[in-house]
Design a protein around this nucleic acid. Structure first.
Lengths: 197, 197
DNA sequence: TCCTAACTTTACACGGTGTCAATTGACACG
DNA sequence: CGTGTCAATTGACACCGTGTAAAGTTAGGA
């Protein structure tokens, strides 16, 4: 969609990203973005159908910039399930801060904009697959704890690693990113790995 | 604030609660509430200064109705830290569904309405004290795991029990309320109790 | 020179919140 | 009986943010 003029389109996306990343999340207005680019608000609509559309495009732009979510695909260096779990959490912990602002904005649109909701859900579903893969790797190794079914364990891991939880722990509780990564790893091991070492 | 006419004021609060509880959260409009009560939208402003005010009053109304958050005060029947942790989680699991709708609405107002944000934060701070009390009870018993400081453990428990997590597990993952309560208890034990039995 | 595409300016519709002024209806008090 | 008061109504309006529309400008290319 929205043909041509890569330059302006990209300027818009990067302005949008920059504003979103500065943490304001949902309170970033179309006019803010336009002002930042140096064009009129109306001109935004020459490139994107509506605000949700722009927000979604911004997420794709992030992927493009940072290599995207293929970073979450399990590395083949992970031999054991435990290594795979650790690697996944570590990758996710690196990825989260990059999508935080956009995530918040998309999440806030959830109730009113089905397209935005779908876009975010898609991302979260992809992420869930990573969780599931790690849990299944544990199960394959027979190191998955007996308390939960693989599906339940996936539910838990997926929830544990949610954007909201990251936000709460880093913003409200003041955890550093390293704290987050380390503790999530240790929590996940404790929750899911049978032989607690 | 907002003197007099208990009757109408209460009608408003109960209509507000009812709409909020039906899960729409933030998309409940002033006009919806007014329509439900059978008065004009403007009349709402005779009783409440603004939407945030009404939402906050609704949370107090819930407390009044259901006995409120004193249910979260640790029962004195809990001898051990572990019992206390279990009891707290169980009480919280019963309380959560009652404040879900309002919580969502208040959470959505967070960015724009500082008063609403403060009201919700206050509640969450109260709840955090319950988390802390349970963790400190474990520490007193020397059954708190060594991996985390009491404060970190409180951060984790507090985050684990967040409204958003409850929402995700019940709404998105389809857990029953009993599933939620049981699994949260078992997760908390696994995360925080030193002697894993 | 003319066409096209990007962008501008100005204006407006819509939905939601919040304010205001004038009015109605009920009830109480002297 | 008249008067005051209080809740609620009606109708209008301001503000904000999103989105649409129409007409005009500017620059580049065939």
């Amino acid at each position: 969609m929205s043909s041509g003029s890569k330059s302006t389109r990209e300027k818009i996306l990067s302005a949008s990203l920059e504003l979103l990343e500065s943490g304001q999340g949902n309170s970033v207005r179309m006019s803010d973005i336009a002002a930042k680019v140096g064009i009129t608000r109306q001109a935004l609509y020459l490139h994107f159908r509506n605000r949700g559309d722009l927000l979604i495009a911004t997420t794709h732009y992030v992927d493009e910039l940072h290599g995207g979510d293929e970073r979450l695909i399990p590395s083949r260096t992970a031999k054991t399930g435990i290594e795979r779990l650790d690697a996944f959490i570590s990758a996710w912990a690196g990825f989260l801060p990059e999508i935080y602002g956009i995530g918040k904005a998309l999440l806030a649109l959830r109730d009113t904009d089905p397209e935005a909701a779908a876009a975010w859900d898609k991302r979260m579903q992809d992420m869930r697959e990573g969780c599931e893969a790690a849990i299944l790797a544990l199960a394959r190794d027979k190191t998955l704890i007996a308390d939960y079914s693989p599906e339940q364990a996936t539910d838990i891991l997926w929830t544990l690693l949610s954007l909201r939880n990251w936000e709460q722990l880093t913003v409200e509780c003041g955890w550093s990113r390293a704290d987050y990564a380390d503790h999530m790893q240790s929590m996940a091991r404790r929750l899911f790995v049978a032989e607690v070492h």
